[in-house]
Design a protein around this nucleic acid. Structure first.
Length: 297
DNA sequence: CACTTGACCTGTCCGC
DNA sequence: TGCGGACAGGTCAAGT
């Protein structure tokens, strides 16, 4: 569930907490959660100081002054929660935290800093991972070489967006939005929300969507991602920010997890169906399948 | 080649 | 109340 706005929220949170701290130790209890943690790279981790926290697509990058970087993917249920060393600085858990005492049963990796503060990588379903790589190798990861542009980048235009989507013009548009090599960072929530906003049925082939609607999709998607970042992302069950707090974007969602409720635009009951192999939420009135030809200008 | 399905996992919820 | 099965959804590998 962590998509671009959720990972960005974690980045901002950790960006204010980690830089300058020196890593004193690391523990992990599930090999796949930290596949290359062994001793041969530990020397580049223990004793290193955090320089900067970055994000690309749904991936977090913590740069260290050892010229290595921690690369982290939260996948579906990953959490990165920071806890201070003493009560004066966030030890224990704040009352509005969704996460209790740490470590808990979903804790997979623990980083300890020299002042006694800790960073917990929790991941109930164990799909997420942490890797330690030489900084220079990060951009050479297969994923980073293939991933599409950041949708919120200042120089990412509506024309760029349309051109990228048209690389897979005969596919259903939701599948294309979810394709990280086309556009970075979009997942199930923001695909459903932006398609509702632009009144496009998720199974419509890209080529069958009028250009004007694709441009609407571009601007709605950017607005939605931006709003979600302002609201601290979407917390459905697991997602929390760097302090263990929930995000509130779902209060503003129009279709995601709103099956059975009236569409805020037309009152028709929102339904849940399947598209691109995922649970998919639509307003059957606003997002009609195959109405695209009728609407061509 | 482009698309779909299965695997990776655990916890929750639903129906019987 | 217990139990089996479907489902949750990001990404990659394997299959059609």
């Amino acid at each position: 569930m962590p998509e671009l706005p959720e990972v960005e929220t974690v980045r901002v949170g950790l960006g204010g907490l980690l830089p300058g701290r020196r890593i004193k130790g690391v523990e992990h209890n599930w090999p796949k959660s930290f596949p290359n943690a062994p001793a041969d790279v530990k020397e580049f981790l223990v004793g290193a100081r955090v320089r900067e926290v970055r994000r690309r697509a749904k991936v977090l990058i913590i740069d260290l002054d050892s010229e290595y970087s921690l690369v982290i993917h939260l996948k579906m249920t990953g959490q990165l929660v920071f806890r201070g060393a003493d009560a004066a600085f966030g030890a224990g858990h704040p009352s509005d935290s969704l996460v209790g005492e740490l470590p808990d049963k979903s804790t997979r990796v623990i980083f300890t800093f020299d002042d006694g503060s800790k960073l917990f990588f929790n991941d109930q379903r164990k799909f997420g991972w942490v890797r330690l790589l030489p900084a220079l190798e990060v951009e050479n990861l297969d994923f980073f070489k293939k991933v599409g542009p950041e949708p919120l980048a200042a120089d990412f235009t509506a024309d760029d967006f349309v051109a990228r989507l048209m690389r897979r013009k005969s596919s259903g548009i939701k599948a294309v939005l979810l394709d990280q090599t086309v556009i970075a960072g979009i997942g199930n929530i923001y695909a459903d929300e932006s398609l509702w906003a632009a009144k496009i049925h998720p199974l419509t082939r890209v080529t069958d969507v009028p250009k004007a609607k694709l441009k609407t999709l571009y601007s709605e998607l950017r607005k939605i991602l931006q709003l979600s970042i302002e609201k601290g992302g979407s917390t459905d069950r697991n997602y929390v920010d760097a302090e263990g707090k929930r995000g509130s974007y779902l209060q503003f969602a129009n279709v995601f997890r709103r099956q059975g409720q009236p569409c805020s635009r037309c009152g028709t009951t929102i339904i849940k169906t399947r598209a691109a192999g995922r649970g998919t939420h639509i307003c059957p009135q606003c997002q009609r399948y195959n109405d695209s030809d009728k609407e061509k200008e």
